[in-house]
């Protein structure tokens, strides 16, 4: 508890001293240190600091355009940062393509629009990367893929094409596909935003189950119920900054910052 409080003070005092974070960040699987990103002249991400321990589950929320998706996309280098450091699993993300590939192998990602490969079957979608990147023998990869498909409760769809599945099923396949690489970290970029309301639950259930298994998770979402149930920390971003960072109970009952309070009012009141 006391630990989190210090985190919070650091985050709010945005240029807070980095060294004091070193102690607990030595065991951190993700470390982001004074990271800045620009799109041309537009300063999208401003001096972000974050340290994530192995097995920690973090929910990032904030109004649209606050840079939360851009932030987690920086963690597997789908977006480039211009300043500061991002260190994932002890590898610093630089221009070095080998470092990027190594990090991407350990970081799974689930997208808002699923991004399944439409020309491949569900099973092929899941096996592709283990076979071509991890060099797993096909049979072994398929068996593993079936296990994960069972875990997301759609083994019976394995030989269908993504276009034949519902949105919720597609997103569960996307989760299974990412898990097939046996990643150490999972990133979720608004995984339920493109789904019809009745399908949101089936995806969240899978994510809750995954959270229970000890996976390190970073999740950008507006599902506050999910945040309350599984998150260790909730991060609120606005205007490219981390405005507030707190355990969910504290975050929802006693938000410190006016911007957080306003945001919570807006999303919880409707």
């Amino acid at each position: 508890m006391g630990n989190t409080m210090t985190d919070q003070t650091q985050a709010t005092g945005s240029t807070g001293p980095v060294p004091s974070q070193k102690d607990d960040s030595s065991s951190a699987i993700i470390r982001v240190e004074s990271m800045n990103k620009w799109y041309g002249d537009f300063h999208v991400l401003k001096d972000l600091n974050l340290s994530v321990r192995q097995g920690e589950r973090i929910v990032i929320c904030g109004p649209s355009g606050s840079g939360k998706s851009t932030f987690i996309r920086c963690i597997n280098r789908l977006e480039e940062h211009q300043q500061g450091k991002i260190i994932v699993d002890n590898i610093e993300l630089t221009d070095d393509i080998r470092h990027i590939d190594t990090v991407r192998r350990e970081v799974g990602m689930v997208f808002q629009h699923f991004n399944l490969f439409p020309h491949l079957t569900v099973l092929e979608n899941c096996c592709l990367s283990p076979i071509w990147v991890r060099k797993t023998p096909r049979k072994e990869a398929e068996e593993a893929a079936m296990e994960y498909l069972e875990r997301v409760k759609i083994p019976d769809q394995a030989n269908k094409f993504p276009g034949q599945l519902s949105g919720g099923q597609q997103q569960r396949v996307a989760i299974a596909r990412a898990l097939c690489m046996k990643p150490k970290i999972m990133l979720f970029d608004e995984p339920t935003s493109a789904l019809d309301p009745e399908m949101i639950k089936e995806v969240l259930d899978v994510m809750i189950e995954l959270a229970g298994s000890g996976m390190t998770m970073l999740c950008v979402t507006h599902e506050m119920g999910f945040a309350k149930t599984v998150a260790d920390r909730v991060i609120f971003m606005d205007g490219g900054e981390i405005v507030e960072e707190a355990p969910p109970h504290e975050f929802f009952t006693n938000p410190q910052e006016p911007r957080t309070q306003k945001f919570l009012e807006q999303i919880l009141d409707h």
Binding site: L78, G108, M109, F111, M181
Partner: peptide, 20 residues
Amino acid sequence: GQYEAADALGLGYWKKTGLI
């Protein structure tokens, strides 16, 4: 999104191009 999904899975340029 197809490029990004392939990138996120760690497929390099030629694998991404050839397979996806």
